[in-house]
Design a protein around this nucleic acid. Structure first.
Length: 317
DNA sequence: AGCCAGGCAAGTG
DNA sequence: CACTTGCATGGC
């Protein structure tokens, strides 16, 4: 069934090899990435796994970090991150999970505010991922007006339907399909998967990548606001999805995706930022969250807001 | 039954 | 430029 029957590379990335805490569960299930699947199938059910469970993904050739697809799975143990992979994945895993981010310094540089303090005390070790850029782009196009769990369910369906499967033994991991493959899938078939009105957006953006007209990595290195603006050239990508790609794939830690949750937080906790344009609110929130690392603050706060009943949140200032 | 979910594109004024 | 409307689907 699978052609690659080679045994996997196995090992441990020791927790002493990075700075600060790591919470793999919060990192992969806070809603910032749709690229991983849990081997027990219980992702985004709201419950942490009872035992150390495997998280699985494939990093494909749309990603400049690899020259050939790499299948891997990881789990968190007391001593670090255990892995199994189709080839040595250590550098890749460190990148995917933000293990080289100086988290203690990042926490120290966050402004003192009741909402921010509550978020980092609740989720110490939540790190910003660096997802494969094309998969990140297309999955966040799908996320428009959909709940996190259903968005993830759709990505799984896309991978299992159109992606290639890699693995070893009884491990089988479905890769997110390449842009070329998705570009060849018709809008109608994507609708049948349940994408709804997002189906043509995904198809068109995949075609843009496949044709070589624009790749999300092309904007890497540009000034933040320029990069955000350039990404909106993809179909189905506005400023919010562009911010997600910049933060969760391209390492722009100053990006703050302004979704409905963050707009609520602004009106309740930072009313001074006003009801202006996206650009204005974004600049204001970056200032309130810590200019260079505002995305780290945003993702902690986002998770807190989603996981906490309103009456248990800090009182509005 | 109605409202909402990590919005966006296209059409007006 | 600011503002409005239509758009799929599922869960509560």
């Amino acid at each position: 069934m699978r052609s690659d029957v080679k045994p996997p590379v196995k090992g441990l990335i020791e927790s002493t090899s990075w700075d600060g805490p790591l919470d793999l569960y919060a990192t992969l299930e806070c809603g910032q990435t749709y690229c991983w699947r849990r081997s027990d199938g219980g992702m985004f059910a709201g419950e942490p796994p009872t035992e150390a469970v495997w998280y699985e993904t494939v990093v494909g050739t749309d990603d400049p970090r690899v020259s050939a697809p790499v299948a891997l799975r990881i789990r968190q143990l007391p001593g670090g991150i255990e892995y199994e992979a189709s080839e040595d994945p250590v550098t890749l895993i460190r990148s995917l999970l933000g293990l080289d981010d100086p988290l203690p310094e990042i926490y120290a540089s966050m402004p003192s505010h009741p909402l921010i303090t509550a978020a980092i005390e609740r989720y110490p070790g939540l790190r910003i991922v660096r997802d494969p850029p094309v998969a990140c782009l297309l999955s966040f196009i799908c996320s428009a007006q959909m709940r996190v769990a259903r968005t993830h369910q759709l990505q799984t369906r896309i991978a299992k339907t159109y992606g290639t499967t890699m693995g070893w033994g009884d491990v089988a991991i479905a890769a997110f399909p390449t842009a070329e493959r998705l570009a060849a899938v018709g809008e109608q078939q994507l609708r049948e998967l349940g994408l709804g009105y997002r189906a043509p957006y995904v198809g068109d953006s995949a075609s843009i990548v496949a044709a070589g007209d624009l790749h999300p990595v092309d904007v890497q290195g540009l000034p933040y606001e320029q990069a955000r603006s350039d990404l909106t050239a993809f179909t189905g990508v506005g400023e919010k999805v562009a911010d997600c790609v910049l933060l969760f794939a391209l390492g722009y830690l100053q990006a703050v995706p302004l979704d409905t949750w963050m707009r609520q937080a602004i009106s309740r906790y930072f009313p001074g930022l006003g009801d202006g344009s996206y650009a204005e609110l974004s600049a204001g929130l970056r200032s309130a969250f810590g200019e260079d690392i505002a995305g780290y603050t945003q993702t902690h706060v986002f998770h807190l807001l989603r996981q906490t009943p309103a009456e248990k949140l800090p009182p509005a200032a």
